[in-house]
Structures are given as C-alpha cells and as structure tokens.
Design a protein around this nucleic acid. Structure first.
Length: 270
DNA sequence: AAAGACACCTGGGAGC
DNA sequence: TGCTCCCAGGTGTCTT
C-alpha cells in the first residue's frame, strides 16, 4: 500500500496528535511482523514523551529523548489515530496509547511491516546505506547519470533501488518513466545525461504531486475509513495494462521487470 | 560487484 | 457456493 507519498502523508497526519504526548502503554497483540517487535520496546517507550515525528525513505520515526521507534508499513500497513475506546478490527496489531486518550494504531494484514527501535545518535542498520531522498537537492539528473554508468539493469529496477534513491515504489516508477518518455526496460547505463535530467524531474514531480493530493485527505488518518491519498492520483499507466495510452491512444503494454508489474506505452516511451 | 530469484503473509478477484 | 490459482503498493537476503 504505502509508497513514499503515503508515508509522508501519514507522518504529517499523525504528528500533531502525538507530538508532545507521553506514552501510557504499548500494546503488541501480534509481534510477528517482518521482524519481531523487540521484547523490551514497551519499557523503552512507556512514560516517555514523543518529541518529534519524521520520515526517512519509507520509514516513519517517532523520536524520544533517548532514541526512536521506527515504523515501516510494508505492503499493507497503515497507522491511524483513534479514540482509546475504538473497537479493534482484524489485523490491528499494535496500539501506542497516549496521555491524551488517543491511540496510534497499527494495522497490517500482510505483516510485511515492522516496528523497531534505534538508540540515540546511532543509525539503525536498515537506515544505513540508503540513497538520497528523491525530493532533496542532492538528488537530480546528474546524480542518476553518474550512478547508472556501466549498469546493465533495467532503468526501472535502477530507480527502484533504495541504495540509489529511496522512496520510488512501483506505482511512481511506472508513472515517472511514462512522463519522461523512457521505456522501463532500457539498460540504465545506456541512457543519456539529458534524459536523466528529465527523469529526475518527473520523479520529483510525480511524488510531490501525490503528497500534495494526500495532504487534502489528512483527516482520513485520524478517523474515518482511512483511504490513502494517492488513490485519487491520476495514474497514466499503472494498473492500466492493455488500456489506451492517454497520450497517443495506443494500447499500453504490460511486462514484468524484477517480478514487478510494469506498464508502458510503446509509442510514447523509448 | 551486480543482477536476479526468493522469502515473508493475507486477501481479493478471476476462472472453473 | 466453493475451490484453486494468481496477483498485490516493499525490501532484505541468498544464489548465481
């Protein structure tokens, strides 16, 4: 479910409700996520005050004086703010109960997500060796061009590699490549600097557009049924295999790259 | 070193 | 209605 824009939207949505709050309890009903929830996490966060919420790649960090709880939403995870008496649904695995009678509730049917802990001033191994944030100034066409030299992997696989750039998931990789007019299976190392400038630009714009739209549905993260913002995003190719290209009308092609569904227009992308 | 396959897990939809 | 099969927004780890 969550690509970078949804994690960012979640981060912004929950921050005002939990920042400055003291944690009353951590309830872990199902510790078997992608990695087990640490046994001692409850002791680490109980009676401690949340000082900040931030995002790095698709990780959501809840900061305390002495360290941070790290959430990852995996494929199907979501975090929402609910009232303390809100009935549990299936797959509501974790509650972080706050002083203000609100609960930060983690829901994740497939359990590919995670809840971990990192000590102060010491980067968790998972957050080490990550590439730049796509929306930062250190990420751009020149960087992509340089990183891609002599690489034979498909350009789509390349931009989805978290050590190159974080946060470009399957939906937005497809969309950014369409907008840049680049065929997803082109060898990364064979693409010109000029075209990487355009690709970096479309990656940034497709992600910021989605975040902007997610911002309009922030209330969904504090009640309601929690429909993620990017469901509203206009998708040009993702999920539209064999439908007509919105640009030229030709039938969109669907292939698999790195076991991921890949959709593109043979006419508009080369 | 880089590329590709596989793993984790549940639910929904298609096809029979 | 119910069974079987395939697919799904991620990403660490193992094998070539």
């Amino acid at each position: 479910m969550p690509e970078l824009p949804e994690v960012e939207t979640t981060c912004r949505g929950i921050a005002p409700h939990i920042t400055g709050q003291k944690v009353n309890a951590l309830i872990v009903r199902q510790p078997k996520l992608r990695w087990p929830v640490p046994d001692d996490l409850s002791e680490k966060v109980c009676n401690k005050t949340i000082i900040k919420v931030s995002r790095r790649a698709k990780y959501l960090l809840i900061h305390f004086d002495h360290g941070a709880a790290i959430f990852h939403l995996g494929m199907s995870g979501s975090l929402r703010i609910v009232d303390h008496n809100t009935p549990l649904k299936k797959h509501d695995h974790i509650d972080l109960q706050l002083n203000n009678k609100k609960v930060l509730r983690y829901h994740d049917p497939r359990r590919f997500g995670a809840l971990l802990w990192q000590n102060k001033e010491q980067l968790h191994p998972l957050l080490d060796h990550l590439g730049p944030e796509p929306l930062s100034d250190t990420f751009g066409g020149n960087y992509l061009f340089q990183q891609s030299r002599k690489r034979k992997t498909a350009v789509k696989t390349f931009i989805m590699d978290g050590s190159i750039v974080v946060g470009v998931g399957n939906i937005y990789a497809n969309e950014a490549l369409f907008s840049a007019g680049i065929k997803p299976d082109r060898e990364a190392g064979s693409i010109s600097r000029k075209r990487y400038y355009l690709l970096a630009k479309t990656i940034k714009s497709v992600l910021s557009q989605a975040i902007k739209q997610g911002g309009s549905t922030l209330r969904d993260f504090v009640g309601g049924d929690g429909k993620p913002g990017y469901f509203q995003q206009t998708l040009n190719v993702y999920g539209r295999g064999s439908e007509p290209c919105k640009q030229c009308g030709k039938s969109l092609k669907e292939i698999r790259l790195g076991q991921r569904s890949t959709v593109f227009c043979n006419g508009c992308q080369r």
